[in-house]
Design a protein around this nucleic acid. Structure first.
Lengths: 210, 210
DNA sequence: CAATGTGAAGAAATTCACAGCA
DNA sequence: TGCTGTGAATTTCTTCACATTG
């Protein structure tokens, strides 16, 4: 719900992130129009204006949007004023890559703990992040006020560790394993499934062959 | 277009991938109903049946779908009967993680070449994949019949290397940098943007606080 | 006069609900 | 009887088009 009690289509949110990223890098001018944002994102100008009106009125007719103000507003809408403590569960190749990913900290997401089952990793620090045994999820999550867990574990254990993390108080899970986690409704989930995306491409290019 | 010349909503395709994955691991029975698929994926049974009818009639009333047959049909629809040669451009942390990712080869995607600008990487083999200099994109892509490029390069060079890859004949690009690549319509694109997904979670959990 | 914000229209996607089949 | 496949209804999302505003 929002200013008019109108439900916000969930697809609007990732678009806001895109607008935000464009604004973040926009240096040409201190004003930007929905048309210019359209050119930079590929979304239609009407859609951009509509998306923004779910949250308020940010523009000046005849002028456009003030870049700094719109940036701040979207930042606030997306909850990026908060600083979020994040746990990374599963320190394999992908997990390690994420530990080194700069994009998180820039936007207020800090990985404050990592977990793995592998004894040779537990107890070490990787990229300044302490690696704990999976069994320590409950207390480490509580003690560090961790609200987001990133899962980079094999698919067959994803459900189990997600449950543990949820029980420990995590509010949201970003899952790199495919598959639908059965968690309480209150725990939000998003998925990144590399295989799905590459299969979409496969579908598109093999259609052309047929 | 499909059997009835009805346009296939593009959102159907990632769902087919999910169904496929469930079928791939389904061992309970040689039959599966849309209701059971629903339980395993979280999509509604009606939606699953509708999705499948875009491509044909695969089920038996009163019985459900034969697991093996449906699996084969979806495999064919997704173009996974083909073997796709893939290039990985950008051998940083994430790129290296993807070079070790098992999920690709299982589904017929083989990374046959990698590219980077870093002289200390060029000429080496990482996970059995030869690393070339970016300047070699044109001939390596042509000579290896590469049709998909995975981009794990910094955002500011993504456009440039995508253009090179497209010019060399790549049909599809999977881009891990955020931002809309300007490429010919014939070149398909998909994006994986980790920041967008985590910001969606941030939005959802910060709403609850308000 | 240029660009926003928004009703209204239109398009797309999802769900309902049930006839018909094995 | 149980479940598919699908018209029709519904809901969700996008675009149109323009009155309004600085």
């Amino acid at each position: 719900m929002n200013k008019n009690n109108k439900k916000i289509p969930s697809i609007v949110i990732p678009r806001l992130s895109r607008y935000y990223r464009v604004l973040y890098e926009y240096v040409q001018d201190s004003w930007i129009s929905s048309k210019q944002l359209s050119g930079n994102t590929g979304f239609s100008a009407a859609q951009i204006r509509r998306d923004l009106t779910y949250f308020g009125q940010f523009g000046i007719p005849g002028r456009g949007y003030k870049v700094d103000d719109l940036k701040k507003s979207i930042k606030n809408i997306l909850g990026l004023d908060n600083k979020w403590n994040v746990a990374l569960i599963g320190v394999g190749n992908l997990g390690r890559a994420l530990l080194g990913y700069r994009g998180f900290i820039e936007q207020g997401f800090e990985i404050v703990a990592a977990f793995d089952v592998d004894k040779s990793k537990v107890g070490r620090r990787i990229n300044k992040v302490q690696v704990y045994d999976i069994s320590e999820i409950p207390h480490v999550i509580k003690e560090n006020g961790i609200s987001i867990a990133i899962l980079t574990v094999p698919e067959n254990v994803a459900q189990l560790v997600a449950e543990k993390a949820a029980a420990a108080g995590v509010k949201a899970v970003l899952n790199f394993a495919s598959g639908h986690l059965k968690l309480p409704e209150t725990v939000k989930q998003m998925h990144i499934d590399i295989t799905i995306e590459i299969e979409r491409l496969s579908f598109l290019i093999s259609r052309d062959l047929k």
